[in-house]
Design a binder for these strands. Structure first.
Lengths: 212, 212
DNA sequence: ATTATCTATAGATCTATAGATAATGC
DNA sequence: ATTATCTATAGATCTATAGATAATGC
């Protein structure tokens, strides 16, 4: 990661070998292809051969980049959840801002993440395989995110910015409202992220009996 | 299906043969076992051998009851969606009742369906395989249900019982709020159906700026 | 005769490993 | 020497069909 002393040419791309006259495929392109296929067909129904064909290499060549198929899904799950987690931690650390606005910001951030990008990447979260112990790191991150919704909601209530009966249940409900974007996008792939975010923000304000 | 003239004994169970001294397994028990496995492991990851073992028969014996594995999922999807569809049609046909109360009744009905029962049966809806053309009948039923949410919401607005900007988007949002129960139940298997239904009803009333 | 099962198995995969090899960078 | 690929293949499935057979109901 420390390539400060390699900044010699115009490009800062890592210098790698290029066998057979082509650029090496690299983990990223493989993960992109795997993500698309996992989302469309599911994890178990996607074969390593399909993934390799999508990036134009032979099936066993995948194993140079990943120890096994599950490692691809694991990396995808964690990398997809990472931005939300980072955002949540950042917001939680800042106690000088209106917590209701922070909660709304986190919700908008997550909605954009789920409603943007070429494929419905959030659908990875819905794969039945994600509940297997091997993906525990991802599950923990997702629970941390639910926890952040709860914490920001409790702070909002304490600040007199929101009024709900059961904060924990409401946090879970808001979270499922956000993740529901995955389902809505599956039903209608042309959903506009901004429009959906507006609608969910509006609904959130009403659910919390809040106004800005 | 016409067994009116077979009502001779105390039991009205269909008379079937019982090979090997045991009761025949029957489609229902096979479907129950398949549902549980599909929900836990996913469709593709569940083998016909696992299903047959769960009902204590050999793998090829399944093919006496079903032409193939997909037929099991197809029947499960349609049968699981059926009660909601029936309820929705019944409500839509009755134009003499307050549409807001009808919408709330449909929502409660669906929440109970998704939050009750021993296994998270609604998780079948989230399987990536459901989007394949072979399950088009199920997809159509599910869209009919979304349509019913929209119709009842528009009637509620027309009756001055609800106030929202974008009825179609709000209907989709409410629907995803209800289906979100599947995700919440996956996170916390001990969820109480009645409590969840109360919370979602409360949230719905606020989202619609309605009161009873 | 019908129902519901069984055994045996064909044929088609699928994941992952072993070992060879070509291009690259030092 | 290292990187990133390839070919060949082992070993383990997995779905579905064919054909036999035992229990049942008429």
């Amino acid at each position: 990661m420390t390539n400060a002393d390699t900044a010699s040419t115009r490009t800062d791309a890592p210098r790698r070998s290029r066998p057979h006259g082509k650029e090496p495929v690299g983990r990223e392109r493989i993960l992109d292809a795997a993500a698309r296929l996992f989302v469309e067909q599911g994890y178990a129904a996607t074969t390593t051969r399909q993934i390799s064909a999508a990036v134009d290499i032979k099936q066993p060549s995948l194993y140079y980049h990943f120890p096994n198929k599950a490692a691809m899904l694991k990396e995808l799950l964690i990398e997809t959840a990472r931005p939300s987690i980072d955002k949540a931690r950042e917001l939680l650390a800042d106690t000088s801002t209106d917590p209701l606005e922070q909660l709304l910001a986190l919700i908008r951030f997550d909605v954009h993440l789920l409603a943007s990008g070429p494929s419905n990447i959030g659908a990875l979260y819905l794969l039945p395989e994600t509940s297997e112990p091997m993906f525990g790191t991802f599950q923990a991150l997702r629970q941390e995110l639910v926890g952040a919704y709860g914490a920001l909601l409790r702070r909002s209530i304490a600040a007199g910015r929101a009024d709900v009966d059961d904060p924990a249940a409401t946090a879970a409900l808001l979270f499922s409202l956000v993740e529901g974007v995955i389902l809505r996008r599956a039903d209608d792939p042309r959903l506009d992220a901004e429009t959906v975010a507006d609608g969910i923000e509006q609904a959130t304000l009403r659910i919390l009996a809040a106004r800005r």
